[in-house]
Every structure is written in C-alpha cells, then in structure tokens.
Design a protein around this nucleic acid. Structure first.
Length: 721
RNA sequence: GGCGAGGUAGCUCAGCUGGUUAGAGCGUAUGAUUCAUAAUCAUAAGGUCGGGGGUUCAAGCCCCCCCCUCGCUACCA
C-alpha cells in the first residue's frame, strides 16, 4: 500500500474525564497507540505534536464533588494531577497535557462558538426539560434519579440505569426526583443552540467514504478501520438529527454571555472537549513560541485522533461537522479508534471496580512500565475487542521479553566482554559465516544488516498504517534473527580456532543490538534507554534516529564503530513469579467483591428496601382487580425480542395480554400455566397489539423471572384479595 | 426486530482488489545446543477457514439463508 507522507502531524488522544483514575483499558484504547505512533514519527524526523488534556467539565464532576463534600475544582485538580503523573510514569510522551478548566480553553471554545453563531450554523430549538423549582435550575440528566421503567431499580439516573444498563431519557423515569433537593422536578421549556447535523450528512458521507472534501482527495478511506467507517455509515444512513450544543449546567464553559439567552447555559461537552485539542495546541505554541495554526489550518497537516470505539461518532461525524461549520480548520486525516480490552474474561468496569488501575500497577510493580506496554501493545484491540489476563502477561514477559529480547542482548554483551573485553571487534569484510536464513549458504555482515534493514522497513510501514501489533512482531523478529545467528554459528565453540569468523559474527550481532536499541523505542522507551546505556551510546532523543539507522544500514555503514567500548550488561527484563501474578489476581477479585458488597447498584439485593414502594391505603389497593387465569395461547411478537402475545382465560372472558417476558420463557412452555392477572389495567398498544392486563411475575436478585401462580387446580376467574 | 463489527490451528490473532500444498506468535512433542535469566535454535503434529446453499475454471475472501458473540437501537402497564 502506498503510504502518504504529510508534512506535519497533529496527534491527539481522547481527553480522559476527570472523574476517576485511569485503567489499562484507557491505555490500550487511546494512549499507548498514540504514543507508539508519535514516538515513531519523531524517530522518523517528522514534525509532530502530541496533545491531550483532562476533560474537566460536566455534571458528573459536580455530583461527585457533592458526594465527597468538596468543590468541583478540587475534584478536577485531584484527577488532573493524577492523570498527568500516571501518563508520565508509564511513558506517554505528550508534548502538552492541558486541561479544559483553563482560561485559555474557555476562551478558545467560546470563540469557536461565536464564530459558528455568527455564521448562522446553529438553530435555536425549544424543548421541555426537568427543572428544580426549589433550586431554581434546570437539571442535567444526571441530576435526576427515579425508578427505572425497565428493571424497577429505584436509583436510576436520568441518562442511564446503572442496574440494568439501559439508556434512558429523564422523562422515562418513574417518580423522578431532583438529587439537589429531593423535590419532584417540573417540566419547563428551555431553549438551546442546535447544530443541524442533518444538513451535513451529504458531504460527510462523501468525505468518509471516498476521502473527498470540497472536490479534493484529503485522505484514503482504505487506511481507515472497518469498524470506524461502518459505525459512521450506520449513523448517517440512519438519518442525522439536530444535536444540542448547549446545556443547562453549572460546571463548564459558559455560552458567550453577550448572546441573548445565554444565562445559565454551558457548552455541550462534545463541543467543548474536542476543542480541548485546539486549546492545548495553542498553549503549547505559546510555550514554544510557535504557530498553532499551521497544525490545524494548513492543508499539509494531518490531524489524527486516537480514541476508543465509544467516541467514534463524536470524532468522525460531530467534530468534523463543527470544524467544517467553522470553516478555517482541516478535517481529521484518520480516526484510528481501538475497540475495548476485556480483563480476565469480563468487561472492564469502573463502577464495579473490575479494572487494573494504571497508577496502582506502577506502585505494585515498580520498574515494569515496559512490560505493561509490551503486553498492551501485543494485545491491542485494534480491530476487535481483546483480552488481558495476568497469566498471559506472565507468559509474554517470560517467553518473549526475557527469553527472546533480553536474552539476545545479554548474550551478545556477555560474549563481547568475554572475547574482547567489551570492545566492538574489527573484522574482515569478506569473512563469511552462517546467516539467519540457515546453514545452506554463506552470509556476510553486510548481507545480514541488509536483512535488518528490510525488517525495519517493514516495521516502519506497519507503523504508518497503525498496525502496531504487526510492527511489534516485526521488532521481535529482529531479535529472533540475532538469536539465530548466534545459534547457527556457535561462536563460543570456535572462538579459539577461528577468531576471524567470530569477530565478524559478534560485530554483526552488536550492530543488531544497536539497531534494536532504536527500533524498540516507540514501544518500550525505558528499555531503549537501558540498551543505549549498556551500549555506551547516547540516549535516544527521538529526533530522527530511526531514519538515520535506516540510512546507515542502506549505505552499509556501522551503527557502532569497531573499537567502541561497551558497558557491562544488566538484565533488561526478569521473569514474573507466580506469587506476583497470584497477588494481582487476588487483588482484582477482592476489590471487585468489596465494591459489590459496598452496596453499589451492580448487584441489587433481595432483602433490601429495593422493592419497597411508598405506603398506600387500602382503598388504593382495592382499586386493583387481580384474578386467576390460565394461559391458553402464547406467541412471540414479531420484530420484538422481549414481547410475547398471550391469550389468557380469566373465566368471564379470554384476554389478550402482551408481556415482556420472552427472554425468560418459551411460548410453548407457558401454555396451560396458571397465572395471576391484573384485570382492570388500562389497555395499551405494544407493537400494534392491544394489551388488556398484566401478568404478575416475581424477579429474584439475579434477574430471573418466575410466574406468580394460584394454588394447583384453582379455578380460573377467582378474585385475588 | 433493525443497524454495525466479528466468528480462521489448544490460545491470541494475520490473511491485500477471489488464484498454486490456508499463515504468524504463544502453547505442545521430538531433536540440537549450553555463550545466555533452565534462556536459545531446528523439525513436527494440529484447521470441515461458524453451518448450509449458490456464482466461478477457481472462494476464507463474492451472493442468498441460518446459527453464535460484541456494540448501538426498538418493544417489557
């Protein structure tokens, strides 16, 4: 595949939300991939900026602050410094790590908003939102709690039920309450700025599918990942909707105050957050006295967003639409979204505390940054969800890092010290030995180094195409090749009889180690430093060193000159003991259990006040007519997963009842079953079928459903009281 | 139910616009080796490419139907 090489790059990683620590899923999704890519570009002497920052606005932060009894600012300060520190420790090499609470960011996003407003890119729309009269403010989705209409969980949020995971609208909640005052909120009309996305769908699909924007080819869709394009197409074909770009919030970036109607309104997080990339770049340019605009507004720049798959549409549809609406900006060249990384067979979950927290890993396993990086990259969810297990971590470290890479480096250095007191040997050019292709034909140092060149070139190609796993494999192949040369020639056996040959072999291997010290850099920067130190070479500064290595190899020049003095070797990696693995697995499980038993909504308990409702009077109960009945027919409702159409004999008549129990019962098993029916429930149409009544069921703590039945043999039509 | 992404060796995954005996890493078995952190190297075993139809001289790759997994989405008074 032809690789396009833009003049300069602006690389972004998704802004982490300042509401909880970073786990390995974050790393695998958006940070390590970007870091590998950026370090690689620097090694190729590319002009590249790598920006990121904390996303510090939104209702979830205010709520957390309230819960912990501190200010939102304290919350974001806490996580911002934790993020910054964690990223630094694991070696994510941002050029700047900024934050969206900064004044510069507020200005930048307000300017952006003003421009769109001036250009008439918004439409104003009125809608009904919940309003807390006591607190005198509109309530963000998260500020409303109520009973989930789907599972009955009583503390569901207005946007999502944490018990059953369903996505909700605040108006779906039964018995909604404001979390500010515990009052019942009222619906009140409010006006917001909307981006009419539907007007953008035409050019968006042209741009996404063909890479053509304003009649010009701006990117190659073949380089985009399948699942990214797929999700975008699905969205566009489903019809884009106007999207509110402002919210009624109290923690965030103000809508420019000079605009009428702006009081109390904040910018929508998905407007504000991607602009965080811009403000971070501005800050960086200010610090370095350079020009931020050439990275954002020059056609020769490539904008690349590394994100997780949950952010795809925001970065490939909404943000591009905003950039286009503004008019001065370039569009992303690629959005290499990763899928999710599972952990020991389960989804990583912050609320269920099923996660490996990066800062805790760094505390528990100090000095093993590159081990984690290696395993994460090796299992990176590039095309589909992947899996992290501690046993796999142990295997990979022991077999690949210790066995292959560290071992090769170690044996080369040990032998060099044994044979030559650590001085790189001089050799005769025409001296042959067995090359890595096997003993069938003679090889020479130059030929072997050409092979190294080829492998590095291949690695380079894979990195340009975001194939990080493939590139890592290629790197390890070089180490394997080194081991082969040693194994085939057995220099330790022939050093007495054939010193000339051994000099050629050892020189070759030392050159390979030198090449590795550079090539390993994007993936394992700490290891690169260690290797450079052992080789007694200056550390890699990521200023075109890989390009230089490629040039030298192509020209047949040495990476380390004969006569150079090497330092004493140390082990690059050590094996991971079973105890360490066991300890981590225990920790994972006990954290999870603690969280579960601490009463988080993950596991609703049977005996708690979970199922208590407000007290009612007898008269209220008397209004309900419950009768016994028998199911005479049960058919699955077409085009509905959960609905069954039941015919129930209640003595006086046969009723049609539509019930959402298809996931729990097979229709044929239900026929003939005795049940209890609410007979006087108002009729309701479901999927076009009128349902007259409701079946009584009981649900246990694991979500299983059972029919409530009268005593065996009881006649149908009996009144239940 | 709709849409999207997947289902390829025990495990984790590659397989470009269809083209010779389907690949890699790890694991397993056997052998070689001992410079090296019991590391390394070689060889081998192991696949009905989810299932069934079809198009084609030729299909893992294209078309149709079905099954399974993941994500989004609709219905659960």
């Amino acid at each position: 595949m032809a690789i396009r090489l833009p003049k300069r790059y602006l690389v972004t990683s998704a802004l982490p939300y300042a509401n909880g620590p970073l786990h390995i899923g974050h790393l695998a999704g958006a940070y390590l991939s970007a870091d590998v890519f950026v370090r690689f570009l620097r090694l190729m002497k590319k002009d590249v900026l790598f920006v990121c920052g904390s996303d510090e606005n939104g209702a979830a932060i205010t709520m957390r602050a309230q819960k912990e009894g501190i200010t939102p600012q304290e919350i974001v300060d806490k996580y911002h410094s934790l993020f910054e520190d964690t990223f630094k420790r694991i070696g994510i090499s941002f050029d700047i790590y900024h934050r969206t609470s900064s004044p510069l960011h507020h200005e930048t996003s307000q300017d952006f908003f003003r421009t769109l407003e001036k250009k008439g890119q918004f439409v104003m729309k009125e809608s009904m939102q919940f309003y807390d009269e006591k607190a005198q403010q509109f309530l963000a989705d998260r500020y409303i709690k109520g009973t989930c209409p789907k599972c009955g969980y009583e503390s569901a949020y207005g946007d999502q039920c944490e018990n059953c995971g369903s996505t909700l609208n605040p108006t779906d909640l039964i018995n909604p309450k404001s979390t500010l005052t515990n009052e019942t909120p009222v619906l009140k009309s409010t006006t917001h700025w909307y981006l009419p996305l539907e007007n953008h769908s035409e050019w968006l699909s042209e741009w996404l599918e063909n890479g053509v924007f304003n009649g010009k080819k701006v990117h190659d869709p073949a380089e985009w990942k399948n699942h990214v394009l797929g999700q975008c197409k699905s969205w566009i074909e489903g019809g884009l909707q106007p999207r509110a770009m402002t919210r009624d919030l109290d923690w965030g970036v103000d809508v420019p105050q000079e605009l009428p109607g702006s009081a109390g309104k904040k910018l929508y997080v998905w407007l504000d957050a991607p602009i965080g990339y811009i403000s971070a770049t501005k800050q960086l340019a200010e610090d370095r006295k350079t020009d931020w605009k050439k990275y954002w507004q020059d056609k020769d720049s490539a904008l690349i967003h590394f994100i997780g798959k949950d952010n795809i549409v925001f970065h490939s549809i909404i943000f591009p639409a905003l950039l286009k609406a503004h008019g001065d900006y370039i569009l992303p060249d690629n959005v290499p979204a990763n899928a999710f990384m599972n952990l020991e067979g389960q989804k990583i979950s912050t609320s269920r505390n099923w996660a490996i927290w990066v800062h805790e890993y760094l505390d528990d396993l100090p000095g093993k940054e590159d081990e984690l990086r290696y395993v994460m990259i090796k299992n990176m969810p590039e095309q589909r969800d992947s899996e992290f297990t501690w046993n796999n971590y142990q295997d990979l470290v022991d077999n690949e890092l210790v066995g292959n890479l560290a071992n090769f480096v170690n044996r080369v250095l040990v032998l060099s010290h044994k044979f030559y007191k650590g001085k790189v040997p001089k050799f005769e050019e025409e001296q042959d030995f067995i090359g890595s292709h096997g003993p069938l034909e003679d090889s020479f140092v130059e030929a072997e180094l050409m092979d190294v060149f080829d492998m590095l070139f291949e690695m380079r190609e894979k990195l340009y195409l975001y194939d990080f796993r493939g590139a890592l494999q290629q790197l390890m192949n070089i180490s394997t090749m080194g081991n082969q040369i040693l194994q085939f020639n057995e220099p330790w056996k022939i050093v007495e009889d054939d010193p000339h040959k051994v000099k050629a072999i050892m020189n070759c291997c030392i050159q390979i180690v030198a090449a590795l010290s550079v090539a390993v850099r994007p993936f394992m920067p700490f290891t690169s430093d260690k290797m450079r130190d052992m080789l007694n070479l200056p550390p890699i500064e990521e200023k075109g060193e890989l390009l230089k290595v490629l040039d030298r190899l192509a020209e047949g020049e040495f990476l380390i000159k004969p006569g150079h003095q090497l330092n004493q070797p140390e082990h690059l990696f050590t094996r991971i003991s079973d105890e360490v693995i066991q300890k981590q697995m225990d920790k994972l499980k006990s954290n999870h259990l603690e969280t579960a038993s601490a009463g988080t909504p993950d596991t609703p308990k049977k005996s708690d006040n979970n199922h208590t409702a407000d007290t009612i009077q007898f008269d209220d109960f008397a209004k309900v007519s419950i009768v016994t009945g028998k199911i005479t027919d049960a058919i699955k409702v077409e085009k509905a997963d959960k609905l069954l159409r039941l015919t129930v004999d209640i003595g006086s008549e046969k009723r049609t009842i539509v019930s959402g129990i298809a996931l729990h019962f097979k229709p044929e098993d239900l026929i003939g079953k005795d049940v209890m029916v609410v007979a006087n429930l108002a009729p309701r149409k479901l999927k076009g079928i009128e349902s007259n009544g409701m079946l009584l069921t009981a649900e246990d703590g694991e979500g299983r459903l059972g029919l409530v039945s009268p005593p065996v043999g009881w006649p149908v039509g009996s009144h239940v009281g």
